[in-house]
Amino acid sequence: MEWINAIVQGILLGGLYALFAAGLSLMFGVMRFVNLAHGDFIVAGAFGALLLVESLGLHPLLTLVIVLPVMAAFGYVGQRLVLNRVVGRDILPSILVTFGFSVILQNLMLEQFSADSQRLSAGALDTASFGIGSLSIGAVPLLMFGAAVAVLGGLNWFFGHTNTGRLLRATSDDGEIIGLMGADRRHLFAIATALASAVVAIAGVLMAVKTNFDPSAGPIRLLFAFEAVIIGGLGSLWGTLAGGIILGVAQGIGAQIDPGLQILAGHIVFLIILVVRPQGLFPKQKG
């Protein structure tokens, strides 16, 4: 029973990992760009929620009303002003610039919030749970998983059914000629980053309710996001959910064997999948 419980918790945790991964996957898909500060932005979202909870007394989940648009706007402006300068054939500048941002952001948060571990309380939601047989499923993990499905579904709809979504897919296929379609590639890149940042905000706030976080908690989130993307297969949003779930379950089983093995078990399953099936489980189908 403990094992089944570990697996169910792992699946639900996978929803959070899919949210971590979606932003990374989206930016890589549209502009072949990986933001090494991705995890630190997730943590920044969590600290943003903390600030609002402390100053305005908002419910943690309600802080999204402010955190989400602020981060999306920050993503748009950051892409236009800085990151667009390093997007391109040579990947070195983009990696090093975002790596620099990661260090800057971590240390700024350390200055501002100290190294103390934080967690947001969602009130009664924290302890609410549903029993299915002898399984007990917490409301927060279930909410996370539901949010992940909703966000991924929303993104999928956006890419499939809007003009901007089509333009982003086309940019992903062949960004060089997107100008022929009358679209400004720099603007599309910034839209992609804004979308990714909005997802990061959601992931950050949910993470703040689910687990402890501190200023140095970013890099490991980047690694989880990356593992979920690679396991799921590049360029596939639903694959990302599958990747997140596999990672979550692997960690759950690892933790069940020995609490010290939780993270390591996830890494090892990732490496095995990378060796056995480097294209991921659900790679994007190309025509």
């Binding site: 086309a170 190309k286 025509g287």
Partner: peptide, 8 residues
């Protein structure tokens, strides 16, 4: 080379 977008 036509350059159509394969995923569209």
């Amino acid at each position: 080379g036509r350059r159509l977008f394969p995923s569209l």
